[in-house]
Design a protein around this nucleic acid. Structure first.
Lengths: 349, 349
DNA sequence: CTGAAAGCGCTTACAG
DNA sequence: CTGAAAGCGCTTACAG
């Protein structure tokens, strides 16, 4: 039996496709009326009632692909470059939840491989996404322009690297670095180190600037900087091993983020047998779930991610509905969350 | 100046839409030919060359929405119910990467809220997805049927709960429970406990069955079961606190998964001051990144996730291309990954 | 292999 | 407010 014949059989019970045409027929109205009842088009109450009733009876669901052909696709691209930092799971959870709340859906774009970023973006643009969220990294200007060329608004999340024409939601990372420095000095540490994230990450650089500036301002001379690498546990562990193997051991370390700090703390404790916080103070940024666990008790600078995600989604949808409104910069401030990893007992050096 | 006028201005340089029509015109061929050159349609080499050349010159990109209207949408739904377990970040990373490799894209469906699962699915089906992957949970039969009704193949990932008509890729969790029991007994533990996942999770139940059966078979009487809850750090921590506060303290605990085990280990160590593994042995399932960190050194049963994801994607695409091929069950076996959390020194009780 | 034409399911000016 | 008609950008039988 041919496939066609099989479909015919099935068709007798369920496979007949329900489109606006069928709904219009049952409701006794025009196809346009059905469309209006389902979109925001103007139509009388009784009309809407009739249409919705017929649609329900037939189990009609609009085809978003067809809808997207003329209007909006209801698809939002969420570009993720960093899958190593556990932070991004709750972030993705919040983005997808809020996007769904807007009656849209998330296309997850995996752009781990940096070389393929433009390729990945080009592909996802073939779906005519209504907007794009870029997490934890800047979009090269040429790609922002490509989006602009198709009227796709872009919002960058949690990165300082600004792109012309793209909105951005991020934290004052210079202030964060400053806060970390002040805290370490207050706790009596005198030889702090900074472990950076990826070389190109402006976010990390800003934290570093704020950190070092503040140390210098306060007369601290004994600082050092260590290039960390990825925002990952392994990178933090590794960098810390190298740092602590040197003759000039720091007495405290500020990490570009929490997952690196966790890796670093484990290196200090388990590989070098150092006591945290007495022999070495550890501080991070983010306040990931792990930071508050008893195993780490990590002092950190908490980023208000929930609010940031909300702001990000809100900004994006505002620009989708009003394309003429310009790009926005929303900068959040963070708070120190002190825990055991820096609570040095009062003691002279 | 009106929006229209502005668009007109922009239009002069970039906004003119490039479609098959423009490409066909430039290449001097028919629209059908352009379509064929871009799909798998039959066309001569020279024709394809001409079309591709013209397309490149114009910067033509096919509109997938339009394409999806008749054919495949190239959209794969990935349903995620559990965003608390960090495990799902690398899993999502692998799924999205492999789906992109198939020239498709991932629609991330957030179905945290169990009540809204059917709603979330109904919405995503409006995009006419080509296939659906369901992670870590079963799809109620009525929803599987709904997918079948639209010819959308379904593959369930990492769950034992089988649904009629859906494929599944998972591990032999009964064997995993057995393995855990054997290991604990071998290491000299005599009063093991099992901390379960969510009550309804068949995966957890299977592990429990295998675990308890094996204990009983080996003459162990002193076992107990504790209901854990979510697959989360907090749930593991909480359940362990209750377990250890009882007079009948276990001397080892098998957790339904690693993140619970990490929470449990922290509770045992930091809240009850117990030495791991001497006073209490800890074993989990999954082998998440954290498990191998020095802070936990967690013995676990490693699930071969990479292979499982590959198998999942492969199965899905096979069913997309051959809808008549039936649902498949792929069962993987796991391996014990021993670490410090169960290495009890030889000692009499 | 190639082209003209119909169609996928919806939306949107345009009349009424 | 409502309907008839054209159109969104592509694919797919159907002829040649």
């Amino acid at each position: 039996m041919s496939t066609k014949a099989l479909q015919g059989i099935k068709g007798n019970r369920t496979l007949k496709k329900i489109t606006v045409v069928e709904v219009a027929a049952l409701a006794g109205v025009s196809v346009s009326a059905v469309s209006r009842a389902f979109s925001n088009g103007s139509c009388s109450k009784v009309m809407r009632e009739k249409v919705l009733c017929a649609a329900k009876e037939l189990g009609y669901k609009p085809n978003r692909l067809a809808r997207g052909l003329k209007g909006k696709s209801s698809l939002i691209g969420v570009l993720v470059t960093d899958f190593e930092n556990p932070l991004y799971l709750p972030i993705l959870q919040q983005f997808s939840a809020q996007i769904q709340q807007q009656n849209c859906h998330t296309i997850l774009v995996n752009a781990c491989d940096h070389q393929s970023l433009s390729e990945a973006l080009a592909l996802v643009m073939e779906y005519h996404i209504d907007g794009l969220i870029v997490t934890a990294s800047a979009l090269p200007q040429v790609l922002v322009d490509a989006c602009k060329g198709q009227n796709i608004p872009v919002v960058c999340f949690a990165t300082n690297s600004k792109s012309e024409g793209a909105s951005a939601v991020y934290c004052d990372n210079f202030a964060n670095g400053k806060m970390a420095a002040q805290h370490l000095l207050e706790m009596g540490y005198t030889r702090p180190a900074f472990v950076s994230g990826p070389v190109a990450a402006l976010t990390s650089l800003e934290r570093q600037r704020g950190f070092i500036n503040t140390l210098v301002e306060n007369g601290c001379q004994d600082w050092q900087i260590k290039e960390g690498g990825n925002h990952s546990y392994a990178a933090g562990f590794e960098a810390t091993c190298e740092l602590l193997a040197q003759p000039t051991q720091p007495d405290s370390i500020f990490y570009s983020d929490d997952i690196m700090a966790c890796g670093g703390m484990d290196a200090a404790r388990h590989k070098f047998g150092l006591n945290v916080p007495d022999e070495i103070g550890i501080i991070g940024v983010d306040d990931i779930a792990l930071a508050s666990s008893p195993a780490y008790q990590l002092t950190t600078i908490k980023q208000p991610f929930e609010q940031m995600v909300s702001a990000c989604v809100q900004t994006l949808f505002q620009q989708i509905s009003k394309p003429e409104s310009g790009a926005e910069q929303l900068i959040f401030t963070c708070q120190l969350q002190q825990r055991a990893s820096t609570q040095k007992p009062l003691s002279p050096i």
